[in-house]
Amino acid sequence: MNPAFSVIFLTTLLGAGQGVFLALFVIEARAAAGLLTAPSVMFYWMGSAIALALLAAGLLASFLHLGHPERAWRAAAMWRTSWLSREVIVLPAFMVAVAGYGWAHWQGLPGTLWLGAAGAAICLGLFLCTAMIYACIKFLQEWATPLTLVNFVVLGCASGVTLATALAAVLDEAITGITGAWAIALTCTGLLTRAASLWRNARLKPRSSLQTAIGVKHPRIVQKAQGFMGGSFNTREFFHDRTPGALRAVKWVFLACAFVIPVLLLAAGLATAVPVLLALACAVQFGGLIAERWFFFAQANHPQNLYYQAVS
C-alpha cells in the first residue's frame, strides 16, 4: 500500500489521545482506591483538554483523506457491517466523553470516576474499531491478525502515557514516577508486540499468486502489459515505490525512535527529574510512531498488485 499521511496521522493522534485519557482514568481509579496520592484537579482537566485536542486533530486528519468531506456525515450509516462506520460513530462519542470528563473535573462535579469508566469503555471500543478497519481485510495478510489490534492498543497507550508523564512532570510531580514507570512498561511491551508482528509478517506466505490471479496453472507466468502506459489509481494507491532498503531503514528508525530512545529518555528524565527529557521522549516517540504507521501501511502487500507488474 502507498501510505497516506492523513490516515497515518489519524491513527497515531487518536492512539495518543486515547492513551492520555486512559492514563487519567487509571490514575483517578488508583487514587480513589488509595493506591497513590490524588493529583490536582488541573492535571485532570489539562490532560482531558490535551486528549481532546489530539482526538480533534486526528478527526481533522481523517477529513483530509476524504474526496467529499462534506458528505462525511453519511459515514455513520452502515455501522451494522462496516468498522469504518462504527469508528465514525464511536470517535465523536469518545470525544464527548473526554470533554465531559474534563469539564466535570473542572467544575468539581461528583461521579467523575464513573464518567471516566464509561469513557474508558468507549475508548477501548474506539481502539477496536480503528484496528479492525485494517485487521478485517483478510487478503491484506500483513494486517489480518489479532496483533494489529494489540499493537494499536499498546502503542496508543504507550504514546499517551508518555505524554501524561511529561504533563505530570510539569503539573504534578508526585505522580511522575508511577506514570513514568507505566510509560516505560508499555513502551517495552509495545516493542515486544510490534516485534512479534514484524516476525510474523516476515514469514507470511502470500495466498494469492499470478496463477490464482489469472487462473493459469503454470509455474512461470510473466506479465507483459498491464493495459496502459501511464499510471492509474491502481498503481498510485497500492505501490509505495520505495526500495526494500528504504523500507528496512524505516523499520530500524521506528524501532529506535518509537521504543528504544523514548525508554532511555524516560528513564533519564525520571532519574534526573528534568521535564525537558520527558517532553523530548514524548516527541521522539510520536515521530517514531508516525514512522511505525508508515511502515505498517507500506509493508501491506495488496493482491491487486499482482495485476500491475509491467507497463509494457
Binding site: M1, H68, A75, I133, I137, L140, Y308
Partner: peptide, 19 residues
Amino acid sequence: KCIGCKYCSWACPYGVREI
C-alpha cells in the same frame, strides 16, 4: 453517497475499483 474514502478499493483483491 460516496465520500471518496477509498476503503472499498482496499477491500477488493482484484483491483477493479478506481477513484
